[in-house]
Amino acid sequence: MTSENLTSKEEDVLDEIESEGVDFLRLQFTDILGTVKNVSVPARQAEKAFSEGIYFDGSSIEGFVRIQESDMRLVPDPDTFAILPWREKEDSAAARMICDVYDTSTGEPFEGDPRRVLKNALERAREMGYTVNAAPEP
């Protein structure tokens, strides 16, 4: 599977989806409290997710936007692609990608997206000469 507008990493993900028999993708993001949310789509929509994004109703996410400004778009990061390991081999496979959230009214990254806030903080730290190291602690 290839498309002229996709990066080589996105094409690699499409190839892996096909070779591993992935049926569903979970496009993940977090709300402002850090709770993981996802929009599940058929794997055949992966190319569309990369090229156009997948739209969802942001007003249904706690703390995102009001109903009047609810259209939001998920853009998956191909570097975060992972096949979910808890399915049996004979079952259909599912995978996930972490997404950036975009405001469809402006086309800009959504300011309330915690991933965007972290990217901004990392960029500011880099500009000041710092290196940020972080890890989860169970």
Rank of each mutant, 00 (worst) to 15 (best):
T106N: 04
V132Y: 07
D77K: 09
R124D: 13
Q68G: 10
T35A: 10
N133Q: 14
S40V: 15
V101S: 01
D91K: 13
K48G: 00
G112T: 01
M128D: 15
A125T: 08
E52S: 14
E127R: 14
D23F: 12
W86F: 15
L84C: 05
A135N: 12
P85C: 04
C99G: 04
Y102A: 04
S92V: 03
M97W: 06
V41D: 02
G107M: 07
R116C: 02
E88W: 10
L33R: 15
L122Q: 10
E52F: 10
P42H: 07
F24Q: 14
V117A: 14
N38C: 10
N133F: 13
I83D: 01
E111Y: 09
A49Y: 07
P114I: 03
V41A: 03
V132K: 10
T35K: 13
L33T: 14
L84F: 06
R73L: 08
L27S: 00
L122S: 04
R26A: 09
R115M: 00
D113V: 05
T104I: 04
G112C: 05
R126E: 13
L33M: 12
E127T: 08
V117R: 14
S59P: 08
E88D: 14
G58K: 07
F81E: 00
D79W: 08
S51L: 11
A43D: 02
G129N: 07
T80P: 02
S40G: 03
T80S: 12
Q45N: 14
M97R: 05
R66I: 09
R116Y: 14
W86S: 09
P78D: 06
M97T: 00
K48C: 00
R73Y: 01
T104N: 08
E69L: 12
F56L: 05
A82Q: 15
E62V: 09
V75N: 07
I98P: 02
G63P: 07
T131M: 11
D23Q: 15
I61L: 01
V36C: 06
R96Q: 12
K48Y: 06
P114C: 05
Q45W: 12
E47C: 10
E52M: 10
T104Y: 06
D100R: 14
S60L: 12
D71P: 00
T80N: 04
P109F: 03
R66Y: 11
A121W: 10
S40Y: 03
N38P: 03
G107V: 02
P42K: 08
E62L: 11
R124L: 13
G63N: 05
K37M: 09
N133A: 13
V75L: 09
G34S: 06
R44D: 12
V41S: 04
E62I: 08
D100V: 10
M128V: 01
V39N: 08
L27A: 01
D77L: 00
A94W: 09
P42C: 02
A43Y: 03
Y55T: 14
I61P: 04
A95P: 01
P76I: 00
Q68T: 12
V75H: 05
